[in-house]
Simulated assay, not measured.
Amino acid sequence: MNAIPTTHFEFPNQTNVYHGKVRDVYDLGDRLLMIATDRISAFDHILPKPIPFKGQVLNQIAAYFLDEVADIVPHWLLATPDPNVSYGIKCDPIKIEMVVRGYLAGHAWREYKAGKRILCGVAMPDGMKESQAFPRPIVTPATKADEGHDEDISVQEILEQGIVSKNEWEQLESYALALFDRGSAMARDKGLILVDTKYEFGFHAGKIYLIDEIHTPDSSRYYYATGYEDRLNQGEKQQQLSKEFVREWLMEHGFQGLDGQVIPEMPDEFVQEISQRYITLYEKMTGKSFEPAAGNDPLERIEKNVLAFLNTNNS
């Protein structure tokens, strides 16, 4: 299985390329081409080994969910010319991530366990257990860092720094909660619980657009609904479909992204387990069988498909 660690293409009308943690973003003027590589990141570090089919899974899940929420908010995606590629409207990104949490897990749980009851200016009730549902979903935004760690930020700080106006914030919050509600309902239909997730937005022609991916295992945490209550009551870890198990493996091997720590080498068996978990989530969420993209050379396939698409759409 040939994984895609990175890409270095030269497409017509290309003005720039940005290599993110997972995606390589090609600037084509008023349009963007995003290639989902098989890189995987955790604790804001790219791990050494790519994960076969991960990029295809992310790209196809994101396209599936963007189509399902088009009635809630306009989004950037126009086409998927290849299983690993998305093409759409270039927006001016808003430099915050809208993190929505329905349950006490992950970063929120680690903060809570350390004694904190305020996260991003939002109060968390006393007496909660790990994986317990909040009385209602909360929005805990984070700064969107170009490099290094994203940082928690409160609504007050967002407004004081002029990142968005009060009206724009209220629109972002409304969109984020509506998207989370839709994602939660879709997850329930598939026997899953959408625990928490993040959304990113941008401006285009004076309007707020949903950008990037949504409801993927890189941006979201899912629990299996079956057995959730029993595990919660017994204080057991939830069975989940998300990237959290990768973070847990790294922590068990002495890595949390802190200065001086060395990223441990993932054995091939663990890499294949990660790949299979991504495929399982795709099939669980979409109800479709995963079909690996054809061809032995994914880079050659991507370039061929993208050039054919651009030639057709620019003619």
Rank of each mutant, 00 (worst) to 15 (best):
V122I: 15
V122P: 09
V122K: 06
V122S: 07
V122W: 06
A123W: 11
A123E: 15
A123P: 15
A123V: 15
A123S: 15
M124Q: 13
M124R: 14
M124N: 06
M124W: 08
M124T: 15
P125L: 09
P125A: 01
P125Q: 11
P125I: 09
P125N: 06
P125F: 04
D126G: 10
D126Y: 05
G127E: 15
G127W: 13
G127M: 03
M128Q: 10
M128I: 00
M128V: 05
K129E: 05
K129I: 11
K129D: 08
K129H: 13
E130M: 12
E130C: 14
E130F: 09
E130H: 11
S131L: 03
S131P: 00
S131V: 09
S131G: 07
S131K: 05
S131F: 06
S131N: 12
Q132G: 12
Q132I: 00
Q132F: 02
A133Y: 05
A133R: 15
A133G: 09
A133I: 04
A133K: 14
F134E: 04
P135R: 11
P135H: 09
P135I: 04
R136H: 13
R136P: 00
P137S: 06
P137Q: 08
I138Y: 13
I138W: 11
V139A: 05
V139W: 01
V139Y: 02
V139K: 01
V139L: 12
V139E: 08
T140H: 08
T140W: 02
T140Q: 05
T140M: 14
P141W: 00
A142C: 13
A142E: 04
T143M: 05
T143A: 08
K144Q: 01
K144D: 03
K144S: 07
A145F: 12
D146A: 09
E147H: 07
E147W: 12
E147K: 07
E147F: 13
E147D: 14
E147T: 11
G148W: 03
G148C: 10
G148N: 07
H149T: 03
H149Q: 10
H149R: 07
H149A: 10
D150W: 05
D150N: 10
D150C: 08
D150K: 03
D150R: 01
D150E: 12
E151T: 06
E151V: 03
E151N: 07
E151M: 07
D152A: 12
I153Q: 02
I153G: 00
I153F: 04
S154A: 00
S154R: 04
S154K: 04
S154L: 03
S154E: 01
V155Y: 01
V155F: 03
V155H: 05
V155T: 07
Q156P: 02
Q156A: 09
E157M: 10
E157I: 10
I158D: 01
I158K: 04
L159F: 12
L159A: 11
E160N: 07
E160V: 00
E160D: 11
E160M: 02
E160K: 08
E160L: 07
E160A: 05
Q161G: 08
Q161N: 14
G162W: 00
G162F: 03
G162M: 09
G162C: 04
G162Y: 01
G162S: 08
G162T: 00
